[in-house]
């Protein structure tokens, strides 16, 4: 417990501002719902470039993109979350994230803003009895006014078999 307090103090010492980077989330839309990703894990936000289809992949992996010379796998988050597929338009964006040397692109309906969310406003994820392990990637639910934003844990999102698959794709 003491360690935890210490750590908090250090941070407070480093910066008096309570708005630590840890509290900044990039918000994006999938349908009506708004999701959030910790901004520290985000490398870039891009308009959707051409996608090269890779055969024999799960449906949600749309293929790979060439982003300034780097080949990055592109995951359709709607399909990944088992939502209805939607045709891409000029507002469709790809969010490039980097987790433990893995770079990956999430295709989302559109990005909205970078928003500060106080920790006090973040609730635990729902724990249903029969909840599958697939939705363990939900970090928490942020209340903001009347709305609720689903905060995602990117690390968990790309762990497991997904990771293996992704590892098969050469990066360079």
């Amino acid at each position: 417990m003491a360690n935890n307090d210490l750590e908090n103090n250090v941070l407070l010492l480093d910066d008096e501002d309570p708005d630590t980077p840890n509290n900044k989330y990039l918000l994006f839309h999938l349908g009506k719902e708004e999701y959030g990703i910790d901004i520290a894990q985000v490398t870039a936000i891009e308009e959707l470039p051409n996608i090269t289809v890779i055969p024999d992949m799960p449906e949600y992996i749309k293929g790979v993109i060439n982003l300034r010379g780097k080949v990055i796998p592109a995951v359709d988050l709607r399909l990944r979350f088992g939502l209805k597929e939607r045709e891409y338009d000029n507002r469709t964006c790809i969010i490039i994230v980097k987790v433990k040397d893995n770079t990956i692109g999430f295709i989302v309906d559109t990005v909205s803003e970078v928003h500060d969310i106080q920790k006090s406003n973040i609730g635990a994820p729902p724990s249903f009895k029969n909840a599958s392990r697939h939705n363990q990637y939900i970090q928490g639910l942020a209340k903001q006014g009347e709305e609720v934003k689903i905060l995602l844990d990117v690390e968990k999102l790309i762990s497991g078999e997904d990771q293996n698959i992704l590892n098969d794709i050469p990066e360079e």
């Binding site: 501002d17 990039l26 985000v42 803003e113 970078v114």
Partner: peptide
């Protein structure tokens, strides 16, 4: 409208960069 969207993207990217810069990017 397109220009505004792209500007928005740029702003968000800038925000990401700023976050990465930590307190120096404030």
């Amino acid at each position: 409208d397109d220009i505004a969207f792209q500007t928005n993207l740029l702003a968000l990217n800038a925000n990401v960069e700023a976050a990465r810069a930590g307190k120096y990017g404030k």
